[in-house]
Amino acid sequence: QLRFETNGEEQAKKVLEEAKKHNLEAHVTIENGKWVVHVK
């Protein structure tokens, strides 16, 4: 499982879109005010 700390909602959405293009499972959590994308 990969973990990407992003700078906010915009970047998190871009990472999610990329993951979906590659048929990867991804979800976002907010940790300590940071948007974190988890990709399987």
Rank of each mutant, 00 (worst) to 15 (best):
A26S: 05
R3P: 04
N32A: 03
E9P: 15
L16D: 02
V39H: 00
L24T: 04
N32V: 00
L16N: 01
L2Q: 12
H38S: 10
L16W: 08
H22W: 05
N7A: 14
E10V: 08
K20P: 02
H38M: 12
E5H: 04
K20T: 10
N23Q: 09
G33M: 01
Q1F: 15
K40P: 07
I30H: 10
E9F: 10
E31N: 04
V37E: 03
T29C: 15
K13I: 13
V39L: 10
E10W: 08
F4I: 15
E10N: 07
E31S: 04
E5M: 04
L2S: 10
H22A: 11
G33W: 00
E18L: 15
E5S: 02
L16I: 12
K34L: 06
H38T: 15
N7Y: 12
E5Q: 06
G8V: 11
K20S: 08
A26M: 03
N7F: 11
H38A: 06
Q1V: 11
A12F: 03
H27D: 05
T29V: 09
H22I: 07
E5K: 01
V37L: 00
V15H: 05
L2K: 10
N23G: 15
L24W: 13
Q11F: 09
N7M: 13
N23Y: 11
K20Q: 13
K13P: 01
Q1N: 14
E25N: 09
W35Q: 03
K40I: 14
E18P: 00
V36N: 00
E25Q: 12
K40N: 14
K34P: 00
E18A: 15
F4A: 04
E18T: 12
K20V: 10
A19L: 15
N32T: 01
A19Q: 02
I30D: 03
K13H: 12
A19F: 13
K40A: 12
K13D: 06
R3S: 09
F4S: 05
K20W: 14
V39S: 01
K20G: 07
A19R: 02
L2Y: 06
A12E: 01
K13A: 11
H38D: 05
A19E: 02
V36H: 01
G33I: 00
F4Y: 14
E9L: 08
N32F: 03
Q1S: 14
V37W: 00
H38W: 11
E18W: 15
F4Q: 04
R3G: 07
L2N: 09
Q1I: 14
K20F: 13
E5T: 05
A12Y: 04
Q1K: 10
K14P: 01
N32K: 06
R3W: 07
K21S: 11
H27W: 15
V36Q: 03
T29N: 05
Q1W: 15
G8C: 15
H38I: 15
V28H: 01
L16Y: 11
V36M: 02
L16M: 14
G33P: 02
R3T: 10
Q1E: 15
V39Q: 00
E5P: 06
G8H: 11
R3A: 08
E10P: 06
Q11S: 10
H27Y: 15
K13L: 14
W35I: 08
K21Y: 11
H22E: 06
T6N: 03
T6H: 03
V28W: 02
K20I: 13
A26H: 02
E5F: 06
E17T: 10
A26W: 05
K21W: 08
R3N: 08
Q11R: 03
K34R: 11
H38F: 07
I30Q: 11
Q11Y: 07
E31W: 01
E25D: 11
T6Y: 12
N23W: 08
G33R: 00
Q1D: 15
K34W: 06
T6E: 05
W35N: 04
V28R: 01
I30T: 07
K34A: 07
E31V: 07
H22F: 07
G33S: 02
Q11H: 12
A26E: 02
Q11P: 03
V15D: 02
F4D: 04
Q1P: 09
L2H: 14
V36E: 04
V15I: 15
E31P: 00
E25F: 05
K14A: 13
H27A: 08
K13N: 14
T6A: 09
N23M: 07
E10D: 12
N23E: 07
E10I: 09
E31A: 05
L16E: 04
K20E: 09
N32W: 00
T29E: 10
Q1G: 14
H38R: 05
E17W: 05
V36D: 01
K21R: 13
G8L: 10
V36W: 01
L16T: 03
K21E: 07
N23R: 09
R3C: 15
K34E: 05
V37S: 01
L24Q: 07
G8K: 08
V15E: 03
K40R: 11
V15S: 02
V39W: 02
E18I: 15
T6S: 05
N23A: 08
E10R: 05
R3E: 08
V36G: 01
V36A: 01
E9K: 05
K34G: 05
W35D: 04
E18K: 13
R3D: 08
E17Q: 13
A19M: 14
L2V: 13
K21D: 07
N32P: 00
V15A: 06
E17Y: 04
W35K: 03
L2M: 12
E18V: 13
A26F: 06
E10T: 08
E10Q: 10
K14M: 11
F4P: 03
H38Q: 07
